[in-house]
Design a protein around this nucleic acid. Sequence first.
DNA 1: TTAAAACCTCAAGTTAAGTTTAGGTCAATA
DNA 2: TATTGACCTAAACTTAACTTGAGGTTTTAA
Lengths: 153, 153
Amino acid sequence: MTVQQKKLTEANLTVGYVAKRSGVKVSTLHFYENKGLIRSWRNNGNQRRYKPDVLRRVAVIKAAQAMGITLEEIIQTLAALPEQRTPTQKDWSALSKQWQAQLDERIAYMQRLRQRVDGCIGCGCLSMSKCPIYNKDDHLGETQSGAILLERD
Amino acid sequence: MTVQQKKLTEANLTVGYVAKRSGVKVSTLHFYENKGLIRSWRNNGNQRRYKPDVLRRVAVIKAAQAMGITLEEIIQTLAALPEQRTPTQKDWSALSKQWQAQLDERIAYMQRLRQRVDGCIGCGCLSMSKCPIYNKDDHLGETQSGAILLERD
DNA sequence: TTAAAACCTCAAGTTAAGTTTAGGTCAATA
DNA sequence: TATTGACCTAAACTTAACTTGAGGTTTTAA
């Protein structure tokens, strides 16, 4: 039995191991713990120990981030996971549905933007009076103004 | 002739007017000028004055940002615009082509991600050994690791 | 003409998502 | 057993893209 296998079966992962396996830095795991995104307990020497499901948690966090979801939102969503028992497939599945919807929205937003850029800038005219790049009702857009940016120039 | 019309025809816009018309704050215009994204000259009292095409510039900057392009990249791209003459439709069109390609890439990335999430998290299994959310070759992904995040857990 | 509104500069503050550093302790191995 | 590598905390630093504040000047309008 290798050291890693021993660690795995004992469900007793060190921070360095989790860092290597999850592809994030040790400092990031500390940071996530501070934020309440993951949890650990301490051994006699005050070192962190993790249950293996922390790996899934970090994977999910990273996946969500790649979808453009902020840590703050992720914290909110992860709060829906059970505290007492290890989350099941159903638990994770529920999360992913939420994020899928967000991802779909984001893709749709990008496509709308693509279309507008086709029409507005693509042709070189940029006549914003007819064809604003920003749309008041498009809440995914970063802009606060939402205004028609140019009417003439 | 209204004051605004006078300003427009005289090609002599104040910072407050540009701010209102472009939907960004005065401080943002100062900031952009510092970064070299826009230019102005000064009147006798040391106040900024702008040519009307600054409105188009700001619109383009905001559009590019909405596409996920950083200011640093925008600065690079805007550097291709002519310094001496006011940019023409062709000039703007060239820019937009570049950004369209980036936008297409980004959309494609999101869609790949969407597919992986369908397969990996959506089903609840999250068995990353077969179906990594992160792909080494997917350079749009934010993750450094690019590793398979979970082999078992 | 005078007060308010708009402008100016420069420096410091803000937020997100970490990373780095410093100064020390714990654990694994030659 | 000694030493090296892994860990600990707390605070400061980083980057992007701005925003805010302080203290002073210019314009505009009643």
